[in-house]
Design a protein around this nucleic acid. Sequence first.
DNA 1: CGTTAGCACTTAAAGATTGAGAGTGCTAAC
DNA 2: GTTAGCACTCTCAATCTTTAAGTGCTAACG
Lengths: 351, 351
Amino acid sequence: MKMSDRKKKILQIVVDEYINSAVPVSSKSIAEKHLTDVSSATVRNELASLEELGYLTQFHTSGGRVPSPQAYRFYIEELMEKGGLSERDLDYIHEAFSHKSNDVEHLIKDVAKVISDLTDYTSVAIGPRAEEEKIRNLALLACGDGRALLVIVTGERILRDSFIEIPENMTEEDLENASHVIAKLFEGKSLSEAKDVEDEVLAEFGQYRQVMREVIDALKMYTRPRDEDVVLSGAEKIFKHPEYEDIGNVKNFLSVISSKDKIAELIGDEDDEIQINVKIGSCDDADVPEDCSLVTATYSAGGKNLGTYGVIGPIRMDYTKVITVLENVGKALEGLISNKNKEKDDKDEKK
Amino acid sequence: MKMSDRKKKILQIVVDEYINSAVPVSSKSIAEKHLTDVSSATVRNELASLEELGYLTQFHTSGGRVPSPQAYRFYIEELMEKGGLSERDLDYIHEAFSHKSNDVEHLIKDVAKVISDLTDYTSVAIGPRAEEEKIRNLALLACGDGRALLVIVTGERILRDSFIEIPENMTEEDLENASHVIAKLFEGKSLSEAKDVEDEVLAEFGQYRQVMREVIDALKMYTRPRDEDVVLSGAEKIFKHPEYEDIGNVKNFLSVISSKDKIAELIGDEDDEIQINVKIGSCDDADVPEDCSLVTATYSAGGKNLGTYGVIGPIRMDYTKVITVLENVGKALEGLISNKNKEKDDKDEKK
DNA sequence: CGTTAGCACTTAAAGATTGAGAGTGCTAAC
DNA sequence: GTTAGCACTCTCAATCTTTAAGTGCTAACG
């Protein structure tokens, strides 16, 4: 059976209505409010046909219809009418991003909060992979008991959570020298380049060779997302949506978002090419819990990945609003970053 | 009216029973199971009297009695019979703490997880105040755009970092020198001592004076706990307790624990002298939500504060178990730290 | 005077019944 | 293809009933 234009129109109405009201929609309400030129009986026939096609379901015979996961997918791909954001929302975004700090860790948190506030859903975010960031500076700080802290400053952030063992006979001065030598070698390299330093290069380091090896081992840690890079914001917002009047759904939801590992798993495997990605539980991805939907966007600016951001909520989600917010936040973020880069270039030129 | 021994006994029975069953306890069940020498009518008289004293309440005339917050407080202070932990639980604690990393940030997380796992409540923890930590090492790392990263390593490897502005005309070498000088000055001092450096001392720093001032400003920021120092574990555990079948309670609970600021506020103002602290909502502390109870312990070893740990859950909490777990975790932690210190001393001696 | 048995009273929780309302499916006619 | 009409189904809310639990009170007992 083919999808006639009227069927599409009706499906769109059903999804729109249901997203707004959370109440199953009836043939009568459609005929009265939206399709005044046909009767409810006609709509009823179309609805029955849409149900057969798998786009609609009903809980019981007299309960109106509800979109199936498949219907949401179709809605997002073909039916949804994108709108803009209100002036107020746009202002909010720009104000939120006007701060000066250029530390990515804070930025991720801010972005997550903005997304959650504007959409009224719980937002999740995962920061950019550190791997491709260029090392700006690096230091080894003695901690006093055979260990040293490795601090790496990249263009975007500070990595400071790995300790390395240092040889017994190494003095603080030695460590400092080693630190300098290594910093010089790695400066301007990305983390992933740095960790692939050849053995021959290593050989030149003489006495510092062992420290060097430890540093490289530590670098390998940064290839996987760390807990700190996974951010959650507005968990309490789920209560704004009626599906979470049901304790079972809340449990389900909470069990997912209370583990950063699980969140990372959900949003971590994005294909960087796709800008906006929608995963609907029990339809697209086995990891997304049933009755849940995950909409994410992977941002990048100047060829640099800026992380993946999104919201998680009930399948009956306001996709239009969510996607619009994600797009606008993306633009704002891109603007922010490229501005910063320009400032930097200007400064560099002055030099 | 005085509390006779029998009244105390009965109150104890009521609290014990209610904690175990979550069901209002009746005069009959008390007489049958625990006070076989008197009749239920007698118990009834005593219950009525305890109710008058404010220790018991009933939801409706025929619904058995439930302890009031005041009763829980009395129970904790006088009636509770402390027991030990099972062999299994003790093993679990020791195994969990046998790892080698002595980075406090990870330790806090582990401790929180252990507490939550053993008690089946949501645990909260706040790391040691940075203020009193002794500075071991300190470095300023150039970041390339008029800023430098200040990294501080303290005794327990608690790291603090923040950006400071550096004067335009300062070269990397200058920065490094400044870093050395400042590090030497502050080594062995606590953060709170360091931030109170006198103006006269500052004057001696000549060209580095401005940087020094920036560093001191940054130090002042560390007096408040950071978000990263507040840890939550086992949020999903609340569903193990019947009071959280009710969506209203879940909302209430989630709104508290979804903000690290609020959590910090709750557990941050502990008096270090008190080892175990119980706050019962609508009885002890206005910040603790009604129907909630917060049991915390502030640990220290070798005179050093190790942070505050605890659980948050319904008023009807298994205080005996919770307090026992907190005590045992405290002992294990103390053992761990003092062992580490001994190792360190041994090493120092060898030198 | 504390303790007890007995009994009337209260209340919640669970089940059954009912009626109203909403919505559909189907059929026959347009 | 569209529509009106009607029977059918199902939920939801209200009402009532029953049951079981537990108390409060009183009068009697040792």
